[in-house]
Amino acid sequence: MDGGVPLSEMEVARLIDRARRRGCRNQNWVGGDPIPHIPFWLRVLLHEEENTPVFFNTNGYYSLEASALLKGVVDLYKIDFKYGSDRCAERISGVGNYWKVLTRNLKSSKSGGELLIRILVLPGHLECCLGPMLSFIARELGTDTRVNLMDQYAPHWRAAECPELRRRLSREEWERALKMVSDSGLENVIS
C-alpha cells in the first residue's frame, strides 16, 4: 500500500476481518501513536465481523477521556514506559507531567484490560529512570506483570541535545539492568 491512503472505516474493517481469518492473533493499531486516531478506530470496530482482539500499542501519554473510551474496547495494552522521572521526560521528549500520566494509565489499563509493558533501556538512564520504573511496576502492578526489556536503543534525533544518548547501551549497563530486574522481584520479564 502507498503512503497515506484514505480508506473508509468499512474497508479497514474488511482488511482486519480477512487478516483474522488467515490466522492473525489480533489487530494492532499503531501510528506514530494511535492516540489521535482513537475516534477513527472506534468507527472501524463498528463494521468488523470477526472476533479479533484489540491490541493497543502506545506511548501511554493519553488523557483520562481517552482512557475511558478505550475501556471496554482494548483487550491488550502495550505501553512503552520510557522515563522514571519528569525531568528526563521533559528534557528528552519535551512532555510534562509524564510520571503522573503514565503511572495513572498503567494502573487503569491493568484494571480495565490486560497489560504488557515495553521498556527500552536508555544509556545513562538506569538510576534515574529504569530503577523507579521497575519498582513502580513491582509495587503497584504486581510482580507477575509482563515486561519486555530491550537493549536495542539506537541513537536518535534528540541525541544532539542529550549527549548521553549519542551512544548505544554498553554491555556493562545491560548487565546492570538485568541485575536491577532480578533485584526488583519482577518474575515475568522477557529480555
Partner: peptide, 27 residues
C-alpha cells in the same frame, strides 16, 4: 480530521503472544 492508512502488514517482530499481529498504521 482524517486518519489515512499508511501501511498494514502481518507483524512478526513483536512479543511471542501477539505474533502474528495484523498491524495497521494510521497517519
Amino acid at each position: 480530521r482524517e486518519t489515512k492508512i499508511h501501511s498494514c502488514f502481518d507483524h512478526m517482530g513483536e512479543e511471542p503472544e501477539v505474533v502474528p499481529s495484523f498491524t495497521v498504521c494510521g497517519s
